[in-house]
Protein backbone atom coordinates (compact mmCIF):
# COMPACT_ATOMS: atom_id res chain seq x y z
CA UNK A 1 0.00 0.00 0.00
CA UNK A 2 1.48 3.30 -1.06
CA UNK A 3 0.18 6.66 0.08
CA UNK A 4 0.95 8.06 -3.37
CA UNK A 5 -1.82 5.85 -4.74
CA UNK A 6 -4.34 7.63 -2.55
CA UNK A 7 -2.97 11.14 -2.25
CA UNK A 8 -1.99 11.73 -5.87
CA UNK A 9 -0.75 15.16 -6.82
CA UNK A 10 -4.11 16.07 -8.36
CA UNK A 11 -5.88 15.12 -5.10
CA UNK A 12 -3.45 17.06 -2.93
CA UNK A 13 -3.75 20.08 -5.20
CA UNK A 14 -7.57 20.06 -5.23
CA UNK A 15 -7.60 19.66 -1.44
CA UNK A 16 -5.29 22.62 -0.95
CA UNK A 17 -7.08 24.76 -3.53
CA UNK A 18 -10.62 23.49 -3.97
CA UNK A 19 -12.22 24.70 -7.22
CA UNK A 20 -15.75 26.10 -7.37
CA UNK A 21 -15.87 26.30 -3.59
CA UNK A 22 -18.54 28.47 -2.01
CA UNK A 23 -22.27 29.07 -1.97
CA UNK A 24 -24.51 29.61 -4.99
CA UNK A 25 -27.21 32.22 -4.51
CA UNK A 26 -30.08 30.76 -6.51
CA UNK A 27 -29.20 27.24 -7.57
CA UNK A 28 -31.58 25.20 -9.72
CA UNK A 29 -30.75 22.15 -7.64
CA UNK A 30 -28.89 21.47 -4.44
CA UNK A 31 -28.52 18.81 -1.78
CA UNK A 32 -26.70 18.23 1.50
CA UNK A 33 -24.46 15.25 2.13
CA UNK A 34 -23.19 13.92 5.43
CA UNK A 35 -20.81 11.16 6.43
CA UNK A 36 -21.41 10.65 10.16
CA UNK A 37 -18.38 8.37 10.52
CA UNK A 38 -15.90 11.18 9.94
CA UNK A 39 -18.15 14.22 10.25
CA UNK A 40 -17.81 15.23 6.59
CA UNK A 41 -20.55 17.60 5.51
CA UNK A 42 -21.00 19.20 2.14
CA UNK A 43 -23.59 20.94 0.01
CA UNK A 44 -23.62 20.65 -3.77
CA UNK A 45 -25.23 23.42 -5.84
CA UNK A 46 -26.06 23.14 -9.52
CA UNK A 47 -27.31 25.71 -12.00
CA UNK A 48 -28.93 24.28 -15.10
CA UNK A 49 -29.45 25.54 -18.62
CA UNK A 50 -32.31 23.36 -19.75
CA UNK A 51 -30.92 19.88 -19.34
CA UNK A 52 -27.28 20.96 -19.14
CA UNK A 53 -25.22 21.66 -16.03
CA UNK A 54 -24.12 25.26 -16.43
CA UNK A 55 -22.20 25.42 -13.18
CA UNK A 56 -21.63 23.29 -10.09
CA UNK A 57 -20.31 24.54 -6.75
CA UNK A 58 -19.82 23.03 -3.34
CA UNK A 59 -19.16 24.07 0.23
CA UNK A 60 -18.60 22.25 3.47
CA UNK A 61 -15.79 20.58 5.31
CA UNK A 62 -14.20 17.22 5.09
CA UNK A 63 -11.07 15.19 4.64
CA UNK A 64 -8.68 15.63 1.72
CA UNK A 65 -10.31 12.86 -0.30
CA UNK A 66 -13.78 14.25 0.23
CA UNK A 67 -12.81 17.85 -0.61
CA UNK A 68 -10.71 16.91 -3.64
CA UNK A 69 -13.40 14.58 -4.96
CA UNK A 70 -16.04 17.32 -4.69
CA UNK A 71 -13.72 19.84 -6.32
CA UNK A 72 -13.00 17.47 -9.20
CA UNK A 73 -16.72 16.77 -9.51
CA UNK A 74 -17.62 20.42 -9.99
CA UNK A 75 -15.15 20.66 -12.86
CA UNK A 76 -16.13 17.37 -14.41
CA UNK A 77 -19.88 17.91 -14.63
CA UNK A 78 -19.78 21.42 -16.02
CA UNK A 79 -21.31 21.51 -19.53
CA UNK A 80 -22.63 17.96 -19.33
CA UNK A 81 -26.26 16.94 -19.76
CA UNK A 82 -27.99 15.31 -16.81
CA UNK A 83 -27.87 11.99 -18.67
CA UNK A 84 -24.12 12.38 -19.16
CA UNK A 85 -23.69 13.21 -15.47
CA UNK A 86 -25.66 10.08 -14.59
CA UNK A 87 -23.32 8.02 -16.76
CA UNK A 88 -20.29 9.64 -15.12
CA UNK A 89 -21.78 8.91 -11.67
CA UNK A 90 -21.90 5.23 -12.62
CA UNK A 91 -18.34 5.25 -13.95
CA UNK A 92 -16.96 6.97 -10.83
CA UNK A 93 -18.77 4.45 -8.67
CA UNK A 94 -17.19 1.62 -10.67
CA UNK A 95 -13.79 3.25 -10.32
CA UNK A 96 -14.09 3.64 -6.54
CA UNK A 97 -15.38 0.15 -5.92
CA UNK A 98 -13.16 -1.32 -8.64
CA UNK A 99 -15.76 -3.48 -10.26
CA UNK A 100 -14.11 -2.24 -13.40
CA UNK A 101 -10.33 -2.59 -13.39
CA UNK A 102 -9.65 0.07 -16.03
CA UNK A 103 -10.69 3.69 -15.59
CA UNK A 104 -13.30 4.60 -18.19
CA UNK A 105 -11.72 6.83 -20.88
CA UNK A 106 -14.15 9.70 -20.27
CA UNK A 107 -13.15 10.16 -16.64
CA UNK A 108 -10.29 12.57 -17.34
CA UNK A 109 -8.87 14.03 -14.11
CA UNK A 110 -11.30 11.94 -12.07
CA UNK A 111 -9.04 8.98 -12.79
CA UNK A 112 -6.87 10.40 -9.97
CA UNK A 113 -9.38 8.72 -7.64
CA UNK A 114 -8.42 5.27 -8.92
CA UNK A 115 -6.20 4.55 -5.88
CA UNK A 116 -9.07 4.99 -3.43
CA UNK A 117 -10.31 1.42 -3.86
CA UNK A 118 -7.15 0.19 -2.12
CA UNK A 119 -8.30 2.03 1.00
CA UNK A 120 -11.80 0.62 1.61
CA UNK A 121 -12.35 2.86 4.65
CA UNK A 122 -12.00 5.89 2.36
CA UNK A 123 -14.35 4.96 -0.51
CA UNK A 124 -17.23 6.72 1.19
CA UNK A 125 -15.19 9.91 1.49
CA UNK A 126 -14.75 10.03 -2.28
CA UNK A 127 -18.29 9.00 -3.13
CA UNK A 128 -20.16 11.33 -0.78
CA UNK A 129 -20.18 14.27 -3.23
CA UNK A 130 -21.39 12.05 -6.06
CA UNK A 131 -24.26 10.64 -4.03
CA UNK A 132 -25.10 14.19 -3.00
CA UNK A 133 -25.06 15.45 -6.59
CA UNK A 134 -27.27 12.53 -7.59
CA UNK A 135 -29.72 13.48 -4.86
CA UNK A 136 -29.71 17.09 -6.08
CA UNK A 137 -30.42 16.15 -9.70
CA UNK A 138 -32.90 13.39 -8.87
CA UNK A 139 -34.65 14.43 -5.66
CA UNK A 140 -36.73 11.65 -4.14
CA UNK A 141 -40.34 12.40 -5.02
CA UNK A 142 -42.64 13.42 -2.19
CA UNK A 143 -40.20 11.99 0.31
CA UNK A 144 -38.85 13.57 3.43
CA UNK A 145 -35.75 15.42 2.33
CA UNK A 146 -33.16 13.95 4.63
CA UNK A 147 -29.50 14.69 3.92
CA UNK A 148 -27.76 12.12 1.77
CA UNK A 149 -25.58 9.92 3.88
CA UNK A 150 -22.83 7.52 2.97
CA UNK A 151 -23.07 5.74 6.29
Amino acid sequence: MDLKDLYRDVIVDHNRKPRNFGPMLSPDAHADGHNPLCGDRLTIYVSLDGDTVKEAKFEGSGCAISVASASLLTEAVKGKSVAEVDKLYGEVHELLTRRDTVAAPGLGKLAALSGVHEFPARVKCASLCWHTLNAALHPPQAAVLAPTSTE
Binding site: D2, L3, C38, G39, A64, I65, R122
Partner: peptide, 21 residues
Protein backbone atom coordinates in the same frame (compact mmCIF):
# COMPACT_ATOMS: atom_id res chain seq x y z
CA UNK B 1 -5.34 18.14 7.90
CA UNK B 2 -8.57 16.32 8.56
CA UNK B 3 -8.30 13.59 11.22
CA UNK B 4 -9.47 10.99 8.71
CA UNK B 5 -6.44 11.68 6.52
CA UNK B 6 -4.18 11.48 9.57
CA UNK B 7 -5.67 8.09 10.39
CA UNK B 8 -5.01 6.72 6.91
CA UNK B 9 -1.44 8.03 6.69
CA UNK B 10 -0.61 6.69 10.15
CA UNK B 11 -2.09 3.31 9.26
CA UNK B 12 0.21 3.06 6.25
CA UNK B 13 3.04 3.66 8.74
CA UNK B 14 1.73 0.84 10.95
CA UNK B 15 0.44 3.22 13.63
CA UNK B 16 -3.16 2.53 14.70
CA UNK B 17 -5.04 5.45 16.25
CA UNK B 18 -8.70 6.43 16.39
CA UNK B 19 -10.05 9.30 14.35
CA UNK B 20 -13.59 10.57 14.55
CA UNK B 21 -15.99 11.87 17.15
Amino acid sequence: IHPHDIGTILDVEGVAIRTGH
